[in-house]
Design a protein around this nucleic acid. Structure first.
Length: 480
DNA sequence: TGAAATGTTGGGGCG
DNA sequence: ACGCCCCAACATTTC
């Protein structure tokens, strides 16, 4: 009987447009499809429970999809290196195929497996599929990595357009003698006692089919006003593709081509299309940066920020995490995150600016919280985004750009719809004060049933003083 | 993919 | 009529 080959699913839980899977199928060998739930290898950079909830349902959907192809998904749990080596031995595999990952720990794991398996005479084959452009393909004229987004994305767009998504393979030949492995339940990815994610299945549909319908919904309803709408959180005009992209349920290449197919030939959609594709570009930029600068999760990209005088106020961090800062737009965002595993992008910038600049808390505390609570928790995007906001990153927001949370609320949530949804205890306040309860006259507060410091927190910091303290801290660092 | 401070201009009230 | 002041409104600079 022919030796099997293993396809090791990682952050690529789909069967369409998957070069590695196509290559494995083309080998002519019977296929064993496996997924290894590995909390050990990422070390301190592991994703949290919200992301695990998504993974559970994505794996369920993926299993179903593989069933439809006549196969099944072997589930394992443990350090990927030892689990994979043991699997190769036990089934006498000829080769292991996978899609490349870009987290520093994952890249190191690939190197290790390549060497370890070669010694055993087993090929370890790694394919692209999760990015539009491989990091090695985008270099500056002096052959270095780009550190500024605009020239980076320009260089990407000058490359040959990403190849059309590979057609779905109709037939996958699965190995008859696949080990039993673990049940999905045995991975214990979903919360119990309490099941805080009980309502999430109404919000999200993990899996390739959900990814496809999310994309179609976005193209049908939101892309025509994306450039402006994306900044107004109550409009929900963003794509909501981030978790689907993170888990590889849809490839950026599939998204790229679907967006072009929808928009090209309609001149009025050109600006919207380019704006959205540039957001895919930011994802590329973050992945490439993390590849070229693997210390990005631990260290500031700009060295002088290593000496920044961060504060460690545990009470302030707690108030931020739980949405009790007294700034409605910040609290609304943090509660949306806690309750749904997601936060609108505009609001992510506002809450991140607030943590790092108003509270002077290290961006890593915020990054860790997002990584634990977001269903789309993605190391590259998360670390890159936090360093960008903090001012310590590549092509970062300048240090003096400090969002005024009240003004941001008034500008992007003018009617207060977003705030009222997530901070219901102040919803009776008139629009004029919905982003600034502390400025409301006593009788207005009373009539709205708001008692500051009781039913809703008074601001934990005063904006003007916090802004000046942040500028002073940054000035001290700047002088080095 | 900011906000605040500072500078400039021009209309209108007023003595 | 004229100069003066005030202060929006807008532009520029600074953080």
């Amino acid at each position: 009987m022919a030796k099997p080959v293993i396809y090791w699913f990682r952050q690529d839980l789909r069967t369409d447009d998957l070069p590695g899977l196509n290559a494995a199928a083309a080998s002519g060998r019977p296929l064993i499809a496996c997924y290894i739930f590995d909390e050990a290898s990422p070390g301190d950079l592991a994703t949290g429970e919200a992301s695990h909830w998504w993974l559970h349902h994505s794996l369920a959907a993926h299993s179903t999809q593989l069933d439809a192809h006549g196969g099944r998904l072997l589930l394992l749990k443990g350090p990927a290196r030892s689990e994979l080596v043991e699997l190769v031995r036990s089934v006498d595999a000829e080769a292991v195929y996978c899609s490349r990952c870009y987290e520093p720990w994952a890249a190191a794991l690939e190197e290790d497996l390549h060497a370890t398996l070669r010694e055993a005479g087993v090929a370890f084959k790694r394919y692209p599929g999760s990015l539009l452009f491989e990091p090695e393909a985008i270099r500056t004229q002096s052959d270095g990595p780009y550190k500024v987004f605009t020239p980076f994305w320009k260089a990407c767009l000058q490359q040959a357009a990403p190849a059309p998504a590979a057609p779905r393979r109709e037939a996958l030949d699965f190995h008859a003698d696949t080990p039993e492995g673990l049940s999905l339940e045995a991975l214990a990815l979903t919360p119990k006692n309490p099941d805080w994610a009980a309502g999430w299945k109404k919000l999200w549909t993990p899996g390739a089919e959900g990814a496809r319908s999310t994309l179609q919904h976005f193209l049908k309803h939101s892309i025509d006003n994306y450039a402006r709408g994306r900044d107004h959180p109550h409009l929900n005009a963003t794509s909501h593709l981030s978790p689907h992209l993170h888990f590889g349920e849809i490839s950026p290449r599939q998204v790229w081509h679907a967006v072009h197919a929808h928009c090209d030939g309609e001149p009025t959609l050109r600006e919207q299309r380019n704006k959205f594709l540039s957001e895919l570009g930011w994802r590329e930029f973050c992945y490439h940066l993390l590849h070229h600068f693997p210390t990005l999760p631990e260290a500031s990209f700009k060295a002088q920020f290593e000496h920044f005088p961060w504060l460690g106020d545990a009470d302030a961090l707690r108030a931020w995490q739980r949405g009790r800062t007294g700034y409605p737009i910040v609290d609304a965002g943090m509660r949306e995150l806690w309750q749904t595993g997601y936060m609108h992008n505009r609001v992510r910038m506002i809450v991140a600016s607030f943590l790092t600049k108003h509270l002077l808390i290290h961006w890593q505390r915020g990054e860790a919280w997002f990584r634990d609570t977001l269903v789309d928790a993605d190391l590259a995007n998360n670390v890159c985004g936090w360093q960008w906001v903090a001012g310590s990153g590549a092509d970062a927001s300048p240090y003096f750009r400090i969002f005024n949370p009240t003004l941001q609320g008034k500008k992007f949530d003018a009617e207060g719809d977003y705030v009222r949804r997530w901070v219901p205890e102040i919803k009776a306040l008139p629009d004029k004060y919905i982003h600034e309860p502390s400025a409301a006259p006593g009788d207005v507060l009373e009539q709205a049933g708001v008692r500051l410091g009781d039913t809703y927190p008074a601001p934990i910091v005063e904006h003007k003083a916090a802004r000046e303290a942040a500028l002073a801290a940054y000035a001290a660092v700047k002088q080095g």
